[in-house]
Write a protein that binds this DNA or RNA. Structure first.
Lengths: 135, 135
DNA sequence: TGTAATTCCTACTAATTAAATAGGGTAATA
DNA sequence: TATTACCCTATTTAATTAGTAGGAATTACA
């Protein structure tokens, strides 16, 4: 299941991308327009800022705004920071690899084999989808 | 993340498929050979039996055995019964559809759009992978 | 007919995670 | 001076996952 964190994050990004200008948008507005708990959204936007797709401006008239063109914001980056690994098992993860402790040999493991395929197909999508494609 | 239930289920099926004969194999053997808690595996095999890929025989000399050729056991069926929906959000699920309560319009929802693609690609894999392919 | 081996079934528990909620304060800016 | 982002901690609630416990029912075989 996709976490609400990721879901809300994507919605917020899309909301910003749809705006014509790139002026700061206060969290309150984004939250209200997308039915998201404001406090929860706060922490999500903070994560997105740290990955470099968003920036923020403090004080009156402040808020969050995109610092990249929507066409340059890849889903791989967004998903990885909000949802975590794209792979469904750590033993096929590119960025979060971990060996299974119950599995003697990855080479002959059926789960490994299947999940590798699934990861590749998901990766193919995320790599070739930008925020612009979702508007 | 893939649940252990699915992981263990796949391993058990593979273990059975690898055997030359189709004689009943006791849970204990499957559990031991694959580092799975026997009691836990018990409930997993029961689910797989209900979907029609396995059958069982009680009593001494009993156990579980495949009743379909590995080449005819589709991952779609296995995954759906063990893991649940293939889609990452209910609003793009074929078999477990549910409307999002926070989302006014699926047609314009970015999350919907993205997750539809991801579901399709996963489905493509699961539909074209049989147990035989994993051996 | 008895016994050991096995599946079958129900219920319980423990640990973890998700999704908030609450509340405080600091810093920047129009 | 009011507004707003930023940052931190703690708590709660609900759900899910993974596993445990115990026993009933069935069967092969001596």
């Amino acid at each position: 299941m996709l976490s609400k964190k990721t879901k809300y994050g994507l919605k917020a990004l899309t909301y910003l991308a749809k705006k014509e200008d790139r002026n700061p948008v206060p969290i309150g507005e984004i939250a209200q327009q997308n039915n998201i708990s404001q406090k929860f959204l706060e922490s999500i936007l903070l994560m997105l800022r740290r990955t470099g797709v968003l920036s923020s401006k403090k004080g009156k008239g402040g808020g969050y705004y995109l610092i990249k063109e929507p066409a340059e914001i890849l889903m791989t980056d967004v998903i990885r920071v909000l949802e975590g690994p794209i792979a469904m098992v750590p033993c096929v993860s590119l960025n979060f690899y971990e060996k299974c402790d119950d599995c003697p040999d990855e080479g002959t493991c059926s789960v490994h084999k299947l999940m590798l395929k699934v990861r590749d197909s998901a990766l193919e999508i995320y790599r070739n989808t930008t925020l612009k494609d979702l508007i």
